[in-house]
């Protein structure tokens, strides 16, 4: 053990990718000029606000009851040289927009186009939480699953295999106990990997629906893809159209949906398109 080694380690630490939490700079509410937007979704009472506070250094009130966060909270942090804006969405069980808070969460993931959506999952209630994860995966493929409350799962004698879960879902899964600040470094790394495109997700999509439904969805998906090429969630939009979701129908008519593809709405087979109203 000579001094040389110690110095070398110290200098290397800052650059070493394992040295994550030290790279975290909590920015509180100052979050102008962000590089990436990260949304925090999840079932009620899974610890979204605790994760939010741990990353931003803000002290948004947390409480042990579902439905505590009714307004959207925003904060910022800096990690690995990038600035992130973190948006804490209201907790929901699904994204089928039955209530205003579900709609708020859904709209943000769909129209706010976050660079990464972190779904905070209660490790003691995997099955019910996965319903939401699967729905999020239908909308966006840039997802990180934060397997929170691992301490509680351990206490309940539950063993959760995060690697199998990651393989099944096709997105990074990070076990954590946000209350005790465990696993946050892994979460930060996963978020930055997905945000920077270092890791490309291959999300699990639902494929066990009845054949007639599958055919109908496929037919509409193809048509949507023709009108809005590059739309990442055409299949999900098709499902919502089939469901008669007025909100999505309006969004399509107004062209809000087209902007989501990153490319403007294009005309697939008619080059003589009449352009009106300026540049696009």
């Amino acid at each position: 053990m000579d001094t040389q080694t110690v110095v070398a380690t110290g200098a290397g630490c800052a650059a070493c990718p394992i040295h994550h939490v030290a790279n975290l700079l909590k920015l509180g509410v100052t979050m102008d000029n962000w590089d990436f937007v990260v949304a925090l979704a999840g079932n009620p009472n899974t610890g979204k606000s605790t994760v939010f506070n741990a990353l931003t250094g803000l002290r948004q009130h947390t409480g042990n009851w579902p439905g505590k966060t009714v307004t959207r909270a925003e904060g910022g942090f800096e990690y690995g040289g990038h600035r992130y804006k973190l948006v804490d969405l209201p907790g929901t069980y699904s994204l089928l927009a039955a209530s205003p808070d579900e709609e708020a969460a859904r709209d943000f993931i769909l129209f706010g186009r976050p660079d990464v959506t972190v779904v905070v999952v209660d490790a003691t209630r995997i099955e019910r939480n996965l319903n939401l994860v699967l729905q999020v995966l239908e909308i966006t493929d840039r997802v990180v699953v934060c397997l929170n409350l691992m301490d509680e799962a351990r206490r309940h004698g539950l063993a959760v295999d995060d690697r199998t879960l990651a393989r099944e879902l096709g997105v990074p899964v990070v076990p954590a106990s946000a209350r005790y600040r465990e696993g946050l470094d892994g979460l930060l790394r996963a978020v930055s990997d997905v945000a920077t495109g270092h890791v490309v997700c291959q999300p699990r999509r639902i494929h066990n629906e009845p054949p007639e439904l599958k055919a109908a969805v496929a037919a509409i998906t193809a048509r949507i893809a023709a009108v809005f090429p590059g739309l990442p969630n055409a299949r999900w939009v098709a499902l919502r159209l089939l469901d008669g979701d007025e909100h999505i129908i309006q969004a399509m008519r107004k062209g809000e949906l087209g902007e989501l593809g990153g490319v403007g709405p294009t005309e697939p087979s008619a080059p003589e398109t009449v352009q009106v109203g300026g540049l696009r």
Binding site: I126, E127, G157, L158, A159, D161, T164, L165, E168, L169
Partner: peptide, 8 residues
């Protein structure tokens, strides 16, 4: 998926 990942 839950069945494959969780053991109680």
């Amino acid at each position: 998926i839950a069945d494959r990942t969780v053991t109680k």
